[in-house]
Computed example of a mutant assay.
Amino acid sequence: MSETIYAIERLAPEHDLGDFDCGQDYYNAWLARHAEEANARGTAAVYLLVRRRDGIAPRVCGYFAICPTMVRSDGAPRQIERAMMQQAPGWLIAKLALDRSLRGGTWGRELLREAIEEIVRSADRGGGQVIVVDAENERVFDWYRAQGFLGTGIDNLRLFMKVSTARKYLNP
């Protein structure tokens, strides 16, 4: 009986992206058609959740893409705005998707945790005060809020978390 191992890996040419299916064509297509270019050009760092089993080809079961961004304080929640410069360096979780086969458990939170860990490491090296994510709909917005992100309270789907809060999230 072979052991199943899941690992986070930086996107590399040897990864087969074609079998990934999160149930949303936009995210599937972005991974298959644009992730390698974004990674190679430096517009986003793309990380994969890869399942490995003895004798079976590795399978991509999730991914996230992060990139640096600038965040305007006047668009942030009040709790975050007070601690920010007018424009602050930050990090965008540009994409985060999980294969249908792993839904219903803790893998979504684990993938988000990995994204936050990578952002905190990057912020420690190069700066960054805020993490931003744009939820695609209300259900996803509510999920990110349950993970500690803050909405603005106005009618949009952008959420925020201070990098200092992220450090606490990682080390409760």
Rank of each mutant, 00 (worst) to 15 (best):
L112M: 12
E36Y: 00
A115G: 03
M161L: 11
P58E: 02
A123R: 13
Y27V: 00
L150R: 12
E117Y: 04
A44T: 06
P13Y: 03
M70P: 11
R125D: 10
R125I: 03
L111Y: 07
A45E: 09
V163N: 11
N156S: 08
G23V: 08
M161R: 14
G42T: 12
Y6N: 08
D155N: 07
R72P: 12
L49N: 04
L48N: 04
A123H: 11
R139F: 07
P172A: 08
E138H: 03
G75F: 13
F141Q: 03
A76D: 13
C61V: 00
D54W: 12
R33Y: 01
V163D: 12
E110I: 08
V71K: 13
R59N: 08
L170C: 06
Q79G: 14
L49P: 01
S164M: 13
A7H: 05
S122Y: 10
M70I: 14
M84F: 14
I66N: 01
Y47L: 00
Y144L: 04
L98C: 09
D21T: 00
G128L: 08
W107F: 13
L112D: 06
A38G: 05
T106H: 13
Q129H: 15
I131S: 08
E114I: 02
V71E: 14
P58Q: 08
Y47G: 01
A32M: 10
